[in-house]
Nucleic acid binder design. Sequence first.
DNA 1: CCCGTCGTGACTGCCTACAGTATACGGAGC
DNA 2: GCTCCGTATACTGTAGGCAGTCACGACGGG
Lengths: 242, 242
Amino acid sequence: MPSHSGGAMKIPRPIPLRESVFEALLELIISGQLTRGQHLVESELAALLGVSRQPVREALQLLSGEGWVDLHPGQGAFVHSPTAEEADQLLAVRALLETESARLAARHATAEEVERLRALCARGMAATEAGDIDTTVALNSELHAAVTELSRNAVLGDLAAQVSRRVRWYYTPVAARRGRSSWEEHAALIDAIADGDAGQAATIMRAHTEHTRTVYLSRLAEEHPASPEPVRRRRRRGPLDS
Amino acid sequence: MPSHSGGAMKIPRPIPLRESVFEALLELIISGQLTRGQHLVESELAALLGVSRQPVREALQLLSGEGWVDLHPGQGAFVHSPTAEEADQLLAVRALLETESARLAARHATAEEVERLRALCARGMAATEAGDIDTTVALNSELHAAVTELSRNAVLGDLAAQVSRRVRWYYTPVAARRGRSSWEEHAALIDAIADGDAGQAATIMRAHTEHTRTVYLSRLAEEHPASPEPVRRRRRRGPLDS
DNA sequence: CCCGTCGTGACTGCCTACAGTATACGGAGC
DNA sequence: GCTCCGTATACTGTAGGCAGTCACGACGGG
């Protein structure tokens, strides 16, 4: 995330293998192929991805740093199993960071940048109308990321990006019922940013994120049963074994 | 940072070597033995600490994740060289996180916990009076950490802790001139928390952190010259060589 | 029948070794 | 004398391998 670099964004020529592994594992986690609480055995993953254990280890530590897996010393890595409480806290923090981002964005955004936001918003609304959940979620993330970038605060942007990615994990099943209203809120937000009305932008973003949080919680309350204490036991045989 | 655990804080028996290395390197960076922009050669550090390269690599990646070093693929690790702009952004984010923490702390804190805060505050003021900068800074961090813990939001607490540690790096030279007033503000903050006055606590914390930020910036403006474009060249001979 | 103890297997943590690559130095050409 | 290029060096990235350790299962005792 080079945030708002001045045009000369440095792209390291050799993409380290650990990052490729990181992306791959992240995809496996988000897509659910690696289930919550599952024990991740380094050698199995290494064999699965066709690399050695070392890049896998490093990728697992990166994932641990961002809260995707839990690293138990001497015991290995386990896919993080988020509790309802934690999700709520995460959404609260997101609300905080994004609200501030919106406030700052309203102060700094140029007309050209506002246009980019509008374009994103239009595409997002189209995807929603078409019922394309995955694209909708992706565009939602992209729009929020764009706003944080406009805050002109790289540190804030990085933190928000990190939190957003985790939120996105829980968010996908919620996206459907947020539907159209979410994008109408986005449109209102962009208007406020275009006007340079910081207070208004912050207020809208606050309402928007809190709305999402409410929807998430209500959904959680419905399918209530959930977590029968996830498996922390050491796995001997599992879905990865052929 | 197990945040607000309920008494049974899990302490993994074998402390991984990478964490010890992490701590050691962090100390070397904060104390200035590793200067800004310096190229960190894995093998040298490994020899220095008497371990192999692997734990050093992993520690460097942890440090990179928290913004202490920059990892250039195929080139190695360099001690991060924070710009004035970045420091300002960091302080702004800290203000945001800590303000929210204070607000939440005021809602959740028990009388017993407030007492702990007061004790910390008293010790801090004593250290300041005694002119013990290091202890003052340490207690300052501890107090702020205690407040974020009282927010009862582990995610917020972790983020704030991370940001605070980085702030502390820049903060040490500033601590002296913040002096007594800082601890008076702390005392006022604790009063607000004790009263359960969330709004007041937030306001005080906002003013407190913004005050710190102002002092930092003014100090920066004074010793203005600064950064003669730090060394990014690859080092062949250096202070680590014996 | 339940509980403590020992044996076994498997996985992590760490070290060593190799290959690829970017940088720095020295020499040849202009 | 300056620039360009070849060679050498040293560092990173990756692989493989060994020892320590944790968990599980079986056996024997209460």
